[in-house]
Simulated scan of single mutants.
Amino acid sequence: MPPRRAVTGRSQEPRQRYVEELRLLRAQKGDSLRQLGDVLGWDWSLFGKMESGQTLGSPEVVQALDQHYGTPGLLLTLWELAVADPTQFRERYRRYMTLEAEALSMWHYGVSTVHGLLQTASYAHELLSAGGLGGEQLARQVEARKGRRALLDGEDSPRFRTILSEAVLRTPLADAAEWGKQLELLLGMSERPNVMVQVVRHAVGLHALSNTDTTFLRLPDGRTVAWVETGYSGELVEETAAAERLQLSYDLVRDLALTPAESRKFIRQLLEEASCEPST
C-alpha cells in the first residue's frame, strides 16, 4: 500500500497539528489572545503557551475552545492524540538540537549532571546507561554527544556558560580514573575564551533553579529560547515572557555562583582529592 499522502499540507505530527489548528481557528475568528482570554475567562498567556506548543492545556480549556470556535470535539480529539503521542519528547528535542546548532550564545544551569557539550565519552556512557539505553543505541548516543562538542570549536563558535551545582561535582563516576578525566575536561574547557564554567556551592542554600536543569539559546533573530529538562522529559520554552522569567531566575543564580577563577580552583581541589583516593 502506498504511503498516505497529506492532503491539507498540515503537520502529521499530533502535537504540531494541534498547535496549528489552535492558531488557524483563532486567526479565522479574528480574536487576539487577550480577547480570547477575556471571553473564556482564562489568562490570555495560557492560550499563547498552547499555540507555541509549550503546554497542551487542560481538557476543560480545550472544550471551551471547541465551543467558542464552533468545532465540537475537534480540538479535544487532537488534544487526546497529542497527549498520547509517544514521540513528542523526541520531536521537541530534535527541534532543540536544531536551534542549538544555530545559537550565537548558550548558557546553562546543571542541577545534577554535566551538560552534554562538556561530557567525556565515559560520563555520557554511564549516564545514558543509567537512563536505560544499551547496545547499539547507546553507542550511537555516546558518539553523538562526543560530536556535539564540535559546536564549541573554531573561531565562530558560540559563547557558552555553564553553572554547575556542587552536587554535579560531588557525584563521581564508578571509575575514579574516568571521573578524573571528566574533571580535567571541565578544567580544560574552562580555559577556552568562549567557555565559562562556574560552580554554585551547597552553602548558598535553596535558590530559583534548585530543581530545574535549564539551557538558554540566543538565536540569530534575537530571540532567546530555553530547554528545561528532567531525567525523563524535556520542554522547549519559546514563548518570550516565559523564557524571560526563566532567564531572570538564571541571573539570580549566577550572582550566587563562584567566579570562574574560584570555580577552577574548586574543581582542581576536587581533582586532587580524587587522585588521592585509594583505588579499589
Rank of each mutant, 00 (worst) to 15 (best):
Q119S: 08
V199W: 03
L25I: 02
Q88T: 14
L46N: 11
G37L: 01
Q182V: 06
A177Q: 13
G205Q: 03
L127I: 09
P72M: 12
G205S: 01
M97P: 03
L128C: 10
R223Q: 14
D156A: 14
N194V: 01
G234T: 04
L76R: 11
L236T: 01
S249A: 14
R10Q: 14
G37P: 05
Q54D: 10
R223C: 02
H202V: 02
Q88S: 15
A103C: 00
Q67Y: 10
R254W: 00
G222D: 05
R34E: 15
A6P: 10
R15Q: 14
A130G: 15
G234D: 07
L246C: 01
L270T: 02
Q198P: 05
A242F: 03
G110A: 14
E136I: 13
R10T: 14
E244G: 02
R92V: 11
L248E: 09
R149M: 14
A124Y: 05
E13K: 12
T215F: 01
P2D: 13
H202M: 09
F266Q: 10
V142H: 03
F89P: 04
Y109P: 08
L187F: 10
P260A: 10
G231K: 04
T162E: 13
L65K: 04
S45P: 05
P260E: 07
G231V: 11
W107D: 09
V237M: 04
